[in-house]
Design a protein around this nucleic acid. Sequence first.
DNA 1: AATACGTCCAACCGCCTCGCG
DNA 2: GCGCGAGGCGGTTGGACGTAT
Length: 253
Amino acid sequence: MKHKRGLWSPDEDQKLRDYVMNYGHSCWSAVPINAGLERNGKSCRLRWINYLRPGLKKGAFSMQEEETILTFHGLLGNKWSLISQHLPGRTDNETKNHWHSYLKKRVAKPEHHDSQIKQECTSYSHTGHTGSSTSPSLSSCTNSVTPNPSLESTDIAKVNKLPKILFADWLSLEEFNGHESSICADGISNGSNYQETPGNDLVSNDQGSTDSSETVNCLSKYSNEDMVHTQMKIDQIFNFNDGDFNIEDLLSM
DNA sequence: AATACGTCCAACCGCCTCGCG
DNA sequence: GCGCGAGGCGGTTGGACGTAT
């Protein structure tokens, strides 16, 4: 059977919607057959997820949603499905498109505007690099944490150059070791719609290592200065007091 | 008015993972 | 352990639309 391609007609949408609402989608390959559609299962799944699924939010992204994307993109890189989990009603495809259309440019812009660094850093972390090399924001990792006004722009720039891998692996290790993710829930998700993600899916690093030994090996590559700044950064992001968390503990695991 | 160019977004493609026999 | 099919994901494409020339 030749599968139809291209844009979906309103009639096709209605057929798919009616079928899934009535019978569910336990097997996507069977959906088009049973629903009388000349599409393949993958296409039906995509159409349902990105357009027909109930609860989808339409229209422009709000400022808060954009901040969320920027924050989690800084932490996770191009993990659109994970990022979209923190955006109720938004799909990974929509989030990805919005990033490529708007936010990527917005992030790239401040590289040439040193004077804007401080201001920009209060809303997102990125100062020039893109994708996997980004660092999480000092302030925007959480909507509840206010920026530290005493932080100089040079400090912010320095912190933003910290290896993302270090921070990302710390988060990963936190879950890997079975610790409750209350830190993440309180610090990153603003406490409202945080969803637990599988440990190895939470972050990825440039080496692709996900187990604890590789992570520690990776961590050990960084200098003391990196450690100090990362410790400072974590403390600021999560409002930790001295001694609440010691990054050196990671290295001794 | 015609054409070129840029932007946005829905949809497709290829790859990976997982479950099952 | 192996092969296969389905689901899921991120990257990319194609076309509709708006704007500039």
